[in-house]
């Protein structure tokens, strides 16, 4: 197990969510569900984060912000789309200002559906994300070794 997946730090960004998924993401971090006991910490700095939790769909205004946060994160990194709006656009998919799910801007590794997504679902998605993080860091190490040879 790589060091990052033992204690993955998460960063959260609210795309254009209704807050429902945001407060559930926070609720997952707080007592009651308390993922901090597993070493999962919420950070505000993209450079410290391993897992990017995005809630809400994408529009022209926040496209650049999501892209920017994703680009600032250091490899290996995992994106989790929290809530149905982040997955596909949800009930707002046909609104004039909604471009669709987060995967229309950045690659998404794990989808956590639900409206609003319940904390159990977020924890499940983060656990899956940790497995992806492990794979990615292995691939990265292999690449570095090959480059060194």
């Amino acid at each position: 197990m790589a060091f990052a997946s033992k204690s993955p730090w998460v960063i959260h960004y609210d795309g254009s969510s209704c807050n429902g998924c945001d407060i559930e993401v926070l609720a997952a971090l707080c007592p009651g569900y308390d993922v901090e006991r597993f070493g999962i910490i919420n950070t505000g700095n993209p450079k410290h984060a391993d897992i990017f939790l995005v809630t809400g769909s994408v529009n022209e205004q926040n496209k650049a912000v999501i892209r920017e946060i994703y680009d600032q994160m250091v490899e290996p990194k995992v994106v989790v789309a929290c809530g149905i709006c982040a997955c596909t656009g949800g009930i707002f998919h046909d609104c004039y200002n909604v471009l669709g799910g987060v995967d229309s801007v950045i690659p998404v590794d794990v989808y956590a559906p639900g409206c609003a997504v319940c904390p159990e679902n977020i924890i499940d998605a983060v656990v899956q994300g940790v497995a992806v993080l492990d794979e990615k860091s292995k691939a990265l190490k292999k690449k570095r070794k090959e480059a060194a040879l």
Partner: peptide, 28 residues
């Protein structure tokens, strides 16, 4: 950053249906 334009959805959801959209204006 969060504008979705959901007031316009009343044109495509009937007045009984729209309750579920109204509920998702804000999650708090």
């Amino acid at each position: 950053f969060v504008h979705r334009g959901l007031e316009k959805l009343v044109e495509t959801r009937d007045y009984q249906q729209f309750v579920y959209v109204a509920e998702r204006i804000c999650g708090i």
